[in-house]
Design a protein around this nucleic acid. Structure first.
Lengths: 124, 124
DNA sequence: CATAGTGCTATAATTAGTCAAGTGATGAAG
DNA sequence: CTTCATCACTTGACTAATTATAGCACTATG
């Protein structure tokens, strides 16, 4: 699983970032630290097993830090380390690309059609 | 599988880009159009079944165009459409992040160690 | 006292991705 | 002239990743 000629950091980076939920997790944490379940909900339906796997990975890569406030009752918070926050640029780039070049999904297209059909409502 | 509050294009974008091999494919095509097997090799060993699935998806999203030059013998070339090329910004952002914040993989670390010539250690 | 919440973990089932082989025409090599 | 490789894939069997579901030990709320 290597690029044709030699090793490059971008290849590695892509391989990390393409893991399912990873970018969603980072994006959620960019707004501030969250607890485990809280994060799961923010991310939109990632199940706990996968979430734990990802968070462990992100922690070992130094993108995320885990603070255990109390064991019982359990209370933990996850937040981005510096390397994690630096992904803001990547998310921003994706954001910009999405708005200008990604065709809306069927679901969103339906929603937009609905909004367009309704009488004008002030959307700020 | 939706974010907590409403739908946003970034979420959709991330969901597309996190599919395995997708970003690798885009990155390979950024250097110019490629044939099917050629692309598979450039991408670093993606198998044909997955490659086809991804390319079909990218085509339907309008990121990639497929040109069939001849059916038999088969000759096809894949290249980025405008929306695909626009991902250059995203790749660039990942590139920059990778260089400054991603710890080298074990493999690369081994390579670098070798190059940096460990002090007084002779690997024979 | 039942219910919902915390951060997980275990098990099983589903889904996604991989591997190996094959297709059918063609060009190159033996 | 036979064999082999190459092109762009397809097929089917397999494995790895992700999911649903349940549960743990415990607190806080109603």
């Amino acid at each position: 699983m290597e690029p044709a000629g030699g090793y490059c950091p971008v290849y590695d980076a892509i391989s990390v970032l393409q893991e399912k939920w990873t970018l969603h997790i980072v994006r959620a944490l960019l707004r501030g630290p969250l607890g485990f379940n809280e994060l799961g909900r923010a991310v939109g339906g990632c199940n706990p097993a996968t979430l734990k796997t990802r968070l462990d990975r992100l922690e070992e890569l130094g993108l995320v830090t885990r603070d255990v406030h109390s064991y019982m009752p359990p209370r933990t918070s996850y937040q981005l380390a510096e390397a994690g926050e630096a992904l803001q640029r990547v998310i921003d780039a994706i954001d910009e690309w999405a708005r200008s070049h990604l065709p809306p999904s069927p679901h969103r297209r339906a929603e937009m059609a609905q909004m367009a059909a309704l009488p004008q409502v002030q959307a700020s």
